[in-house]
Write a protein that binds this DNA or RNA. Sequence first.
DNA 1: TTATAATAATACCTTTTGGTATCATGTCAA
DNA 2: TTGACATGATACCAAAAGGTATTATTATAA
Lengths: 110, 110
Amino acid sequence: MQEVFRALADDKRRDILMLLSDQDMTIGDVVDKFDITRAAVKKHLKILEEGKLISVHVRGRERINRLEPMAFQAATEWLSFFSQYWDTHLNKLSTAIENEQGENNDKHNN
Amino acid sequence: MQEVFRALADDKRRDILMLLSDQDMTIGDVVDKFDITRAAVKKHLKILEEGKLISVHVRGRERINRLEPMAFQAATEWLSFFSQYWDTHLNKLSTAIENEQGENNDKHNN
DNA sequence: TTATAATAATACCTTTTGGTATCATGTCAA
DNA sequence: TTGACATGATACCAAAAGGTATTATTATAA
């Protein structure tokens, strides 16, 4: 989990993920899209790999980097807790309103 | 966007968010839950605030930290691109299979 | 087989991060 | 008003992050 969010925490790495969503790429392909050195790109790809957001497939002397879309689910699920939280609190609010109305009705009935 | 993912990239900060999902808390409340100093907690809260994941409400000499669940949507939406990507590729795959079958049928018809 | 292309590995540098300790400020309550 | 409490603000430190440059490997193609 930590590795996933760490991998997502950098602008360039998120850009790389967008690139890879279009097509698999070698390190060289990725380097051409940025103004940083091959070594820097390599480090980013390593961090993405540690977060399992990409997989690497060696083909001869090339290294194909491929998106692993399923890995994003870990992050999505963690975040979904908070949208659920939001729903829950909306429900609490509407329940509170209903109870308030119920109490008022009771008062009327007394 | 960067600020949101940056805020989510630390274990303790994600823990703090979970705490705040249960109830609003002062800095002191949060400090009691961890083994780090008040100043360190303050820094984490500042980063969470910069990501707009929490809001701060001053009440006398206290500082109430409150979760802002809507802010999580920014991250969720970014991630949703990749689940969509996954769907798209599944569709491509099934379309390819259908086409393959179509071609086979043509061959049979010839 | 040998030069070259693609990548790996290492050392090094600067900035950011996560943390501490210390001192200053503002607010409540007696 | 004055002491204690909650927080704010600095200064400082070690480690991690993001980057460069340089030096190996390894694999392909002539």
